[in-house]
Design a protein around this nucleic acid. Structure first.
Lengths: 152, 152
DNA sequence: CGGTATCCTAAAAGATACTG
DNA sequence: CAGTATCTTTTAGGATACCG
């Protein structure tokens, strides 16, 4: 499988995007790339085990803390999120303007969470990613088996 | 800021998407949600510090291992990725069909990495996410300041 | 130069118990 | 029920050294 710069498959990448990418690539190779804030920010935002998942579920309506915790536990991975961590993540998401938190006047007070407008917007992106994986799950599975079968 | 089910801002969410989300939400609340494979798979795939970033850079061409490491170090966060981890992540991405690895016949052999077709496709999604964050960085920043300023 | 083996640390997350 | 305070565990990732 010979590889050279000219042989890259750019299927599905639109030209404007490709141009932007190429420019950045050139900068990178030249060593002149400044720490690109959006890139770093993106991964600081979503680089943990739960944040995107929380955003995803909150995108489905208004949730009480406990209810949200139960659902995340079922969705997430094998594990459940701990009460502490859920509170932590919600705080962080609220701080960044993604999540809205409302406390009722009841005794004991009821606390509800939903997406703030900024969160709604990001939610669409997250959902797209889920869609992509759903659509390509079979291909990924196949690649995995092929890789495991023979030693390259 | 009162919140009830009817008041959610669904700006920018298309109706079909919204319907799908609502159905899933209903399942969730009913407790009947099976562990939704695509969702979990997505986060297993991209839920770490480097994979998406690696995908992003690989989308810009063909890279040697060392060169890739340098660039990632500049882009990533403050830190550089260790040689071990880069190899680990590249292996995993190769296994899933995202990355192609080529070894030349030279002595010593040169190893090059690029995106496989499946990776090209995912790359577009990753890039979109970067774009989203770039476009909303100011809003996030503002929310953060507002949150920090007064104690809610 | 790319890869691997070892060891080690730091950060994230879990468990538990307690408060209003 | 939501939140917080401790304490402990896990583990992903870093440092280092060595091999082909």
């Amino acid at each position: 499988m010979p590889m050279d710069g000219a042989s890259i498959d750019l299927t599905g990448i639109d030209p404007a995007h490709h141009a932007a990418v190429s420019r950045l690539a050139a900068d990178m190779r030249a060593g002149g790339v400044r720490r690109d804030e959006p890139v770093r920010a993106t991964f600081a935002l979503l680089g943990d085990r739960w944040s995107t998942l929380i955003l995803l579920v909150l995108g489905m309506g208004v949730w009480r803390h406990a209810e949200l915790r139960r659902v995340l536990g079922r969705l997430g991975a094998e594990e459940k999120i701990s009460q502490r961590v859920l509170t932590l993540k919600l705080r962080a998401l609220e701080r960044d303007g993604f999540v809205a938190r409302a406390v009722s006047a009841d005794v004991p007070p009821k606390v509800s969470y939903a997406l703030a407008p900024l969160g709604e917007s990001l939610h669409a992106e997250a959902w797209r990613l889920i869609g992509w994986v759903r659509d390509h799950a079979a291909a990924i599975e196949a690649a995995r088996h092929a890789f495991d079968a023979q030693d390259e």
